[in-house]
Design a protein around this nucleic acid. Structure first.
Lengths: 81, 81
DNA sequence: TTGAAATATACGCATTATCGTATATATCCA
DNA sequence: TGGATATATACGATAATGCGTATATTTCAA
């Protein structure tokens, strides 16, 4: 398992996994992001039209960041969740 | 310089840098993403309300992907552009 | 199994992206 | 410096977000 993201769907899965790893409910994460629980729900569902801002606010709340990598570089980073 | 992303603004900068590294115009990238040149322009400008889908379509066209990292993990990957 | 907590949806509203089509600017090279 | 290429903006139309407020549903533990 790697924490590699290539689509809104994968982004949603990652957010959900990280949120649960912290024992937070969607409501808890939503309040830290200053958005509604419903917004977190859609983000995690991988809604493609989600605003980038929402995604990055989630990463910030979860203390995560993204590193760009060449696709297929084989750089398989193991999950830290 | 690291290719680390924490916001729509940084995402836009990254896309622009990667696009230029390939010698593509916004129009060229846009056609590969099936969006308008104006959409690429806004994405690169860091418009926070840009759809996540647009961002990921750009990464795909640019053959890039994202790796999640703990913020401040000091994992400073050098830019490959 | 039951009941609470968590998550998915819903409705009206305001806002804004993106589209299609165009054009004003800005950038860069011959 | 002139011209071509590239990028930023514009306008009306359409569509979908996220908000506030609520409520179905699903999940899970006592």
């Amino acid at each position: 398992m790697t924490d590699l993201i290539r689509s809104p769907r994968m982004a949603g899965d990652l957010v959900r996994k990280a949120r649960k790893a912290r024992g937070w409910s969607q409501t808890e994460l939503a309040s830290r992001m200053n958005v509604r629980q419903a917004t977190v729900s859609k983000l995690e569902a991988g809604e493609p039209a989600t605003r980038m801002e929402v995604f990055f606010d989630a990463l910030t709340a979860l203390q995560l960041e993204l590193v760009v990598s060449k696709r297929g570089s084989g750089a398989d980073f193991a999950s830290f969740f």
